[in-house]
């Protein structure tokens, strides 16, 4: 046997050096790229005008606000498919309560609708142990059904200027109120995910629920809270529709769940949980809005817009996806 002739070269170092996680930043690059391309190509069509840009923010605000809450749900390892339908229902309950009892009651009714549905989602997922995909898929049908039933599928007009100003068409000085809602949700969401214990618990729960619970995190409560908040914020999204369109209707928000989820995933949040970014989700949402707007200005037909938008989202998500092989 050859006795040791070679001595070690210090501690064994790790081979997997940290790599730059460029995938997380795809959305920012994509945003800049799309923006530059549209600026050049659509300059004549008025893409770069302040009015158009503000319009983009206004049109995406509901998606953006809901995407912030959805970031928490997805980062915790769950999903909420009911947000679009719930927005519709909340717009309806808000409008009906305003007509009956006034603006404050309307706001309360809308938020309460979101809380009830969100809590129901959360309880069914965490206490009954039904996968969130199924719970919220079912809830999507229920909420749309309820909204259609109580209104007889008719729109419910909102004639109170104060509500419409705050939640939709108004401005604060030169700034549209919808822009402020976007900013507010970005700030609150970012701080909540990064700077308070709850955000870390969300990420730990999504990253490894067993280790999180062995470390004293109440994972069921963490998820329940995320789904409940997501319900309330989806309702807020519905109220933003109601304010912008001066009415409540079951169709407001329909299909938005897909744009919201796409925005969140584009923003670098992992669909399997554990990684999340609120800033990314907001930029992802704006990117989707940018694409919609640009395609419209290009004069594409709606059918063509759908195709191009779908292809761009798939491409971007494919690039942004983490751990594709690892």
């Amino acid at each position: 046997m050859s006795k040791p002739s070679v001595t070690g070269t210090g501690e064994a170092r790790h081979r997997d050096a940290e790599r730059f996680e460029w995938r997380q930043y795809v959305v920012y690059g994509g945003f800049v790229l799309v923006f530059l391309v549209f600026s050049a190509a659509l300059f004549q069509s008025g893409f770069l005008t302040a009015n158009n840009l503000l319009n983009i923010v206004r049109q995406t605000s509901t998606i953006t606000v809901v995407a912030v809450a959805m970031t928490f749900v997805i980062a915790s390892g769950e999903i909420d498919l009911s947000v679009g339908a719930l927005a519709g229902l909340a717009s309806v309950t808000t409008a009906m309560a305003i007509a009956q009892f006034g603006v404050l009651a309307g706001i309360a009714a809308g938020l309460l609708t979101g809380l009830v549905v969100g809590l129901a989602n959360g309880i069914l997922v965490t206490r009954a142990g039904i996968p969130s995909f199924l719970v919220t898929l079912g809830m999507m049908g229920i909420t749309t059904g309820v909204a259609m039933w109580i209104t007889g599928t008719a729109p419910v007009p909102i004639e109170r200027e104060s509500f419409n100003n705050v939640f939709g068409s108004g401005n604060l000085g030169p700034i549209p109120s919808l822009f402020l809602w976007t900013l507010l949700s970005l700030a609150v969401g970012h701080v909540a995910l990064r700077k308070i214990p709850y955000g870390r618990k969300i990420l730990a729960t999504g990253g490894n629920p067993i280790a999180a619970s062995f470390t004293g995190v109440d994972t069921a409560r963490t998820k329940l809270l995320a789904l409940a908040i997501c319900g309330v914020v989806a309702a807020l999204g519905g109220m933003l529709y109601a304010g912008r369109l001066h009415s409540g209707r079951f169709q407001w928000g329909q299909g938005d769940e897909l744009s919201v989820i796409a925005a969140v995933i584009l923003g670098g949040t992992s669909l399997s949980g554990g990684v999340g970014s609120v800033v990314g989700a907001v930029v992802g949402s704006l990117l989707i809005g940018l694409i919609n707007n640009g395609l419209l200005l290009m004069g594409l037909e709606y059918s063509q817009q759908l195709i191009v938008r779908g292809a761009i989202i798939i491409l971007a998500v494919a690039l942004a996806r983490r751990n594709a092989s690892a």
Binding site: R200, A204, N208, T215, G216
Partner: peptide, 29 residues
């Protein structure tokens, strides 16, 4: 790997997980 650590998170985040509620100032980490 299963019960002790969130393998995809950083050393620091794993270390702080049981301490989160203690290492706060005015509710912020």
């Amino acid at each position: 790997r299963v019960q002790g650590l969130v393998m995809g998170h950083s050393l620091r985040d794993n270390f702080l997980l049981p301490l989160l509620d203690r290492f706060t100032r005015y509710g912020f980490i």
